[in-house]
Amino acid sequence: MPPTGRRSLLRSAAGLFGALLLPKLAVAGDDLWTTFQTPAAFLAEAFGAPPAPSVLVLDAAMQAQIGTVFGRAYPQSQLRYWKANGRSAWILDDIGKQGYQITTSGFVVKDHSIDFARVLIYRESRGEQVAEGSWLKKLSGRKLAGTTLDQNVDNISGATLSVKMMQRMAATALVLDTLAKA
């Protein structure tokens, strides 16, 4: 006998949704983003065996300091990071322009400079050249000078907003590293 009642009606509706719509979303989703590296692989690259994560609680003063570099209020009040052997790793999300999709990137900071950077997940239709190793190397060695990086990083034609986003995230990682040491 088929189940009756409200709960089984909801299960049937959920099953129908899953059967009809989710395969289409999955196909469309493949076109919407590219995973270049998982967060776990990024942390393994940075540390070998990653240390346990720490949590940085961002008070109002820290939020204000980050906001000057990030260009707006930082969306989180707590942030996980990993630290070992004089290096810290930060996994950050940002958008290139209001209405765009979030990009997830990882930054390793050592001696107050960017040791290396990786784009982990890129969700936009253009500008993914910022994930290329040859461009990411340009962030290595950069330090914070005021609210920006100490040296300009070459732009990529057609990826201007993505380049600015990566520079902003790199500068934010440097500020976060300083705040985590305080």
Rank of each mutant, 00 (worst) to 15 (best):
I95S: 13
I95C: 10
G96N: 12
G96K: 12
Q98L: 12
Q98D: 11
Q98A: 15
Q98I: 10
G99C: 07
G99K: 05
G99V: 03
Q101T: 09
I102T: 14
T104E: 12
T104R: 15
G106H: 06
G106K: 03
G106F: 06
F107K: 12
F107M: 08
F107G: 08
V108H: 04
V109T: 03
V109E: 00
K110A: 15
D111S: 11
D111C: 08
H112Q: 12
H112P: 00
S113M: 09
I114G: 10
D115P: 00
F116V: 00
F116W: 02
A117I: 00
A117E: 00
V119E: 06
V119M: 09
L120H: 01
L120K: 02
I121T: 15
I121E: 14
I121N: 14
Y122F: 15
Y122D: 04
Y122S: 03
E124C: 07
E124A: 04
R126I: 01
R126A: 13
G127H: 07
G127M: 07
G127P: 08
G127D: 02
E128L: 04
Q129W: 09
Q129Y: 08
Q129T: 08
V130Y: 02
V130P: 06
A131G: 08
A131Q: 06
A131T: 04
E132R: 15
G133F: 07
S134W: 09
L136Q: 15
K137D: 14
K137C: 11
K137A: 15
K138V: 05
K138C: 01
L139F: 12
L139N: 04
S140G: 12
S140C: 10
G141V: 05
G141P: 10
R142T: 02
K143V: 05
K143Q: 12
K143T: 11
L144D: 02
A145Y: 04
A145P: 01
G146F: 03
G146I: 08
G146V: 10
G146Y: 09
T147V: 10
L149H: 10
L149D: 10
Q151K: 15
N152D: 13
N152G: 14
N152K: 14
V153R: 09
V153D: 11
V153M: 13
V153H: 05
V153Q: 11
